[in-house]
């Protein structure tokens, strides 16, 4: 791309922190779905208090069900098992740790953080 002065559209398109819900809306180790713009997000509150966010769409079944899986761990990785065909994903990176014999596919992830009892997502085109 050629060098250009930044115009208004490029400066506003960067990701910003967006409030989604309060921490109290989440339950430890059970996901919840959230609707951000038109995207379906799966939110997870882990036992150490961190919040993780992934795409709610299961890449293996194309159904929007990831938030309804079982949260667990694999060695050091916090995981989510898809309720559809049981593939297991690393909640930190979205990479698939158990493909059940299928080709590797990953979950998209977003950065999430807690602040003043609320849950925020780093949301925008470039995330």
């Amino acid at each position: 791309m050629s060098t250009q002065t930044l115009d208004r559209t490029t400066t506003t398109a960067g990701p910003t922190w967006r409030r989604v819900c309060s921490v109290d809306d989440l339950e430890v180790e059970r996901g919840r779905a959230a609707l951000v713009d038109h995207a379906q997000i799966a939110l997870f509150l882990l036992s150490d208090g961190t919040v993780r966010a992934t795409c709610n769409r299961d890449p293996y079944s194309s159904a929007y069900v990831i938030s309804r899986g079982i949260v667990g761990s694999r060695e050091d990785a916090p995981t989510i098992a898809s309720p559809m065909y049981k593939q297991v994903f690393d909640l930190r990176t979205g990479s698939c740790l158990d493909t059940q014999g299928k080709d590797p596919a990953r979950l998209r992830t977003w950065q999430a953080r807690r602040s003043d009892g609320d849950v925020y997502l780093l949301w925008g085109r470039a995330s």
């Binding site: 059970r30 079944s61 159904a63 069900v65 079982i70 559809m84």
Partner: peptide, 19 residues
Amino acid sequence: IATLQDTNDHVMANMQKDG
């Protein structure tokens, strides 16, 4: 106990292919 349940037991219904 709720967090231990497979989605079927968790919502007391059977998940189908479209969720």
